Simulated assay, not measured.
Amino acid sequence: MPRVQLPAVTPKRRAWNKGRIVGQKRSLLPKQVWAIRARLEMARNLRDLLLFNVAIDSKLRGCDLVKMSVSDLVRDDRVRERVSVIQSKTRRPVQFELSENIRKTIAEWIKSAEMSGCRFMFPSRFHDRLHISTRQYGRLVRDWVAAIGLEPSGYGTHSLRRTKAAEIYRKTGNLKAVQLLLGHSKVDSSVRYLGVELEDALSIAEQIDI
């Protein structure tokens, strides 16, 4: 009896996003920023407080944020008011300001025992790593938003990158400024990143009379 050759069956791989909510993550509202900040201040968790505040102010991607060194923020024992960082994704420089309160926190943090001998601003608590990983950072963000009653699946590290830029856009409608602050090469990228809708654009246009 001749043998019948059956077609090979390739097992289906589980989709990477099965069971996950994907898509653009929400930015935080000002009241939510203050709620997270207050919790970290009460806990006296200087590293995480600084990580959160610098993430909001710098608008950096997580991969650039976690690798920030002490020398990026401090020069000649003084905390810089303005900082410039070369983005690893685009190799383009992006600048940001540090508020007075954040500069005070940085000065306190670099003098703490936890920072003794550390080159990076956000050292990992795992001994085999010099700084926290982007995965660790992502877990921290989920913990922060969950602590104030938000659904963690709707937020991520890009929520912090987007927060201040979204607020600047809401208050000024200046996409060019947002483009420069986010380090995007094109305004179109900022439009997509912020999720600017036609209604937003029309509302801005209505305010301009020429």
Rank of each mutant, 00 (worst) to 15 (best):
G154K: 05
I132G: 07
I102R: 02
S124H: 03
H131M: 08
A165V: 05
R139Y: 14
K164Q: 13
I102D: 06
E114M: 06
A147Q: 07
H158D: 09
T157V: 08
N101Q: 14
R139C: 10
G138K: 01
E114W: 00
L130S: 14
F126A: 11
R125Q: 14
T105S: 08
A165I: 02
G138L: 02
E108H: 12
F122S: 00
M115K: 03
G154T: 02
H127R: 13
M121L: 15
T163C: 14
M115D: 08
T157N: 04
L160A: 07
I148K: 06
L150A: 10
T163P: 04
S159M: 07
R135G: 13
R142E: 11
I148G: 14
L98S: 03
W144Q: 04
F126I: 05
C118I: 04
S159T: 04
S112L: 04
E108I: 12
L130D: 15
R161V: 00
S153R: 15
R119Y: 03
K164E: 09
T105W: 03
R129F: 11
V141C: 04
A147Y: 00
G149S: 12
K164P: 01
I148S: 13
I102A: 09
I106M: 05
K104P: 00
R103W: 03
W109G: 10
G117A: 06
M121Q: 04
E97K: 12
E151H: 10
T105Q: 07
Q136V: 12
I106H: 03
R103V: 09
D128I: 03
E97V: 11
E100P: 04
S159V: 04
G117I: 00
G154L: 12
P152N: 04
I148V: 15
S133E: 09
P152C: 02
A147I: 06
W109M: 09
S153A: 15
N101K: 14
H127W: 11
I106V: 15
T134M: 10
S153K: 15
V145W: 02
D128F: 06
A146H: 10
S159W: 02
E108R: 13
P123L: 01
H131A: 10
R129I: 00
K104M: 09
S124I: 00
I148F: 10
R142D: 10
K111P: 14
I148D: 12
S153H: 13
R135H: 13
E97W: 14
E114Y: 01
K164N: 06
I102V: 15
I106L: 08
L140Q: 10
Y137V: 00
V141F: 05
I110M: 11
M115I: 08
G138T: 01
R129E: 12
T157W: 00
P152I: 02
R161G: 09
R125L: 12
R162K: 15
W109T: 11
I148C: 13
L150T: 01
T105N: 07
R129L: 13
V141L: 04
W144C: 06
G154I: 00
